[in-house]
Structure formats: C-alpha cells, structure tokens
Amino acid sequence: MLLRCVLLSLLLATPVLAAEPQDLARNKNCFACHGLENKIVGPAWKDIAARYKGQKGAEQLLAAKIKNGSHGAWGPIAMPPNPVSDAEASQLAKWMLTRKY
C-alpha cells in the first residue's frame, strides 16, 4: 500500500507534457500571435527556426523567451511572459527549431 501511495505521488508530481507539441502550442494560445508559416503579431515559427538554426544554446534561449517574455528581437512589439512550465517551454522551443524554412 505504501508503495502504491509513493508511486501515485510521483506520478502526480511529474509534469505532464502534451502528446504533440503542436497541441501544447494550441493549448497555450501560441497561435494567437505566431503562425507556423506566416507572421501574425509575432514572427512565424519557421522564421524563428531559420534565425536560430545551428546556434549553440538556441533551445535554452528560446525556452527562456517563451517563459519570461521578450522585447526587441523582432521589432517593437513585446512578447509577454507565458504561463508555461520549464518543461513545456523547452518542448515548445525544441519543436519550434524543427520548423522548416
């Protein structure tokens, strides 16, 4: 019984990531400002992928921007901080970097 309680506690404490990063992006309203192929308010994800292609530390940099917000990288409109966990921000950044340009 104790083992069951411990395992259940671990399961409940582990962040659950969306099965598909695109679903996570949809659930976090990323598409309200970013299109996959086209700029909306912020840049298209394919353009972000092209800018950061091959850049060391790009995933961590983008994850931080997703979570904490950003200003000035793509123009005068700031991206506000987003209500995502570190794991979700990392998952979104990793997926973003795989977009084709």
Rank of each mutant, 00 (worst) to 15 (best):
S90Q: 13
L2C: 05
K56V: 04
L62F: 01
F31A: 12
L10W: 12
L11S: 05
K53P: 02
Q22K: 13
E59Y: 00
T98P: 10
A18D: 11
L61A: 11
S70K: 03
D86V: 14
W74Q: 04
G54C: 05
L7C: 15
P43E: 00
A18C: 10
K28V: 09
I66L: 12
W45D: 11
L62I: 15
S9K: 00
I40Y: 00
D47R: 11
N38L: 03
K53G: 08
H34N: 14
N27I: 01
A89Q: 09
A78W: 01
H34V: 05
I66F: 08
A25D: 04
V6E: 05
Y52V: 03
G42I: 00
L11Q: 06
C5G: 04
A78E: 12
W45H: 08
W74E: 09
P80M: 10
L3R: 15
A18S: 14
A19K: 06
K28D: 04
L3V: 15
A87H: 09
P43N: 00
N29M: 12
L7F: 14
K39F: 02
P43L: 02
C33V: 00
H34R: 12
V6I: 15
C33Y: 00
G69E: 08
K46S: 15
W95H: 15
K46W: 00
M79I: 03
